[in-house]
Each structure stands twice: as C-alpha cells, then as structure tokens.
Computed example of a mutant assay.
Amino acid sequence: MSKNRKPLIVLLAAPETSASVLYGLYDVLQSVGAVYADMVVGAPGDELLDVRIASTDGKAFRCLGNIPVEPHTAVSQIDMPDAVIVCDMYTSIYDVPKGRHPREIAWLRKVHSDGALLTSVCSGSLMLAEAGLLDGHEATAHWAYRDMFQRHYPKVAFRNDSVLCLTAESDLIVTAGGVSAWHDLAVYLIARFCGYQHAIETAKVFLISGHSEGQSPYSVMTRPIETTDRQISDCQVWIADNYAVANPVEHMVGRSGLNARTFSRRFRSATGLSPIEYVQALRIEEAKQMLEIESYSVDDIGISVGYEDSASFRRLFKRSVGLSPAAYRKKFQHISQIAKPIEAV
C-alpha cells in the first residue's frame, strides 16, 4: 500500500444485505480518525480510511427491508482494495446459495490472489465458501448456518462458537459470526490498518464492547425435521416431547424398528448428529429456555430435562454453551428486567 493513500476498505453489498450491517460498518469505519477528536477536543481530525460501498454493477438497489442503497462503484472498477468486507447475504437455512453471485465471486478470487484481505460478516461467509476460498480453513458465520456448512461445504472447518475467526488470517481470510459481529470485525480492521489506539478510541465513540464469550451462549439448536426418512422423522417428533425420559436413545431405536447400528447411521445422516448428541443438544436447549424465564434452581432444571446428576448437567451445559448455568441465567436476566415494565403496561 502506498504511503500517499488511505487504506481502501470495500463493503460488498447486495439485495440480500442487512442495512444495519452495511450502514453500521460504513459509519464506524468512515469515522476513524475524525469523530473521536471532534468529541474530545472539539476539532475533527482527518478520516484515515477510504471506505466504499460496491455491488455487482454499481447501480442503486434496495437491500433487506426495502432500504435504498447507492453504491459508490461496481466491483469491476476496483482493482486493488486493501480489504473487502462481504456483508451479510441472507439466505434461508434450507436454501443453499449455489450458483449465486458469479461476478462477485470471480472478483473476490482475483483481489484475494492479488493480496487483498477478505473478510465477511454472518452469512457473507457463504459467498467465500462458494468461491472455494475457505476450503481447508476454519471459518465462522451465524450459528444457524452450521448444518449448511457441514453438509454443503465439508472442506470448511466451521467454528460454531467463534465470533471473530482469525485462524486463517495469515492466508488473508477473516470471518465474523452473527450480524452484530460486524462490531468485532470493525475494531479488528481499524487496529490492523490504523493502529490499536484508533481502535480503542472508535470503540469508545460507538460504545462497542465486542463479544468476548463467543457465539455459544446465543446459539440455538436448529431442529429441521427429516422429511425423506419416515422412521427418523417420527423419532424426532417423539423425542421433542420426551427428551427427559431415561434411556431415550433406546426408546427411539425400539420405536424405529431398526437395529441400533442402522438407526444410529441413518439418524446421523438425517440430522448431522448421533442420537445421543441430538438428545443432549435438545435437553440443553430446553434448559437454556428455562433458565431465561423461570426461577427454578439449576439442579431442578437439570432434573426436569433428564439429568439426575447435577454435576454432570453443569459440566455438559458449560461444555455446550460456554457458560455455567448460573452465568447463562445472569447474562440473559437483564433482558427480562427490561421487558417487565413493558409487560406491566
């Protein structure tokens, strides 16, 4: 990068992009070097980054929520960005984005081979995966896309717990998790291109604190019912109401009429999890919901979802969620406190 120009950060957007991600990133990155000084000493400094919104053809469009977007440029008019942020590109967890965005993908491959840092927010990593740029790397996206990655992009090591995945940084790839993970990505990019102090100052301006605990506390078990394997789908429906019974896998095997080995193989093929992993995930999900809204003790909640041994329940919960049951309850307690005045109206 020439010392005579600002680092060029390109925000790649499309009609599937969230306005909050696109405009949030633009506002924060465009402010670096200018707004903090204005707030502290009353005199704005120089903007340190050249931030541009780009799309396939550079023409105006409307993103999610029917919000208008007027890109600065088309991707074909940008030869050498210092970094690209692929904004979220929403797609249903049932709708694999195969064959979409061919021009953007070709451009991403080119600028990456020329030395640009490629980053993504949330479902934006699906575009990087479709381009083959995540093959052989760890990467993250919103937790809801973990099954999609495992099924359709098996060469990518999906990090379900990660908010900001930096393990492929040396290969110029950085991915961020859910939609609000753009906060963490923005701070990272500011530190990389403008220095640590500017990252701290910008975080203070916008009250950005990051997600130090990762995605796990926010993750929810996705439960699509298998539609092509009748015996497995029947067991999924049954276990949803009977997760607390003793020996649940044995019950499902008996219900299916299959031998244990065949049942386990078909269950994993249909759900991506072994039967016992599925039961444990379901039990933990139910426990999380109870911790969020109920005042029962942790031990009573463990028993209610099928764990008589409270120590085992606590260990499994922390391994799955990244927080102890008590810490999880405390984390989400403030939401119920905010909601109570609303409910009382």
Rank of each mutant, 00 (worst) to 15 (best):
M1R: 14
N4C: 03
I9T: 13
V10H: 03
T17V: 05
A19M: 02
Q30M: 13
V32G: 06
A34Q: 14
V40R: 14
G42M: 06
E47M: 14
T56D: 15
K59D: 12
F61I: 02
C63Y: 00
L64P: 00
N66D: 14
P71W: 13
A74H: 04
V75E: 03
T91Y: 05
I93P: 08
Y94V: 09
K110V: 05
D114W: 07
G115W: 01
L117M: 08
V121A: 01
G124D: 01
L134N: 04
T140D: 06
F149C: 10
H152Y: 15
K155Y: 09
V163M: 12
L164G: 07
C165Q: 15
L166W: 07
E169K: 15
D171S: 07
H183Q: 14
L185A: 03
F193M: 03
G195T: 05
H198Y: 11
A199Y: 02
A203K: 07
L207E: 10
I208V: 11
P217C: 05
P224T: 13
P224E: 11
E226Q: 12
E226M: 05
T228N: 09
R230F: 08
C235N: 08
Y243F: 10
N247P: 03
H251M: 11
G254S: 13
T262F: 00
T262H: 06
F263D: 01
S269M: 12
L273T: 03
S274R: 15
S274G: 13
P275S: 04
I276K: 12
Q280G: 05
A281V: 09
I284V: 13
L291M: 09
E292Y: 11
S297Q: 00
I301M: 00
G302E: 01
S310V: 10
S324Y: 07
P325Y: 05
F332V: 02
Q333E: 13
I342T: 03
E343I: 11
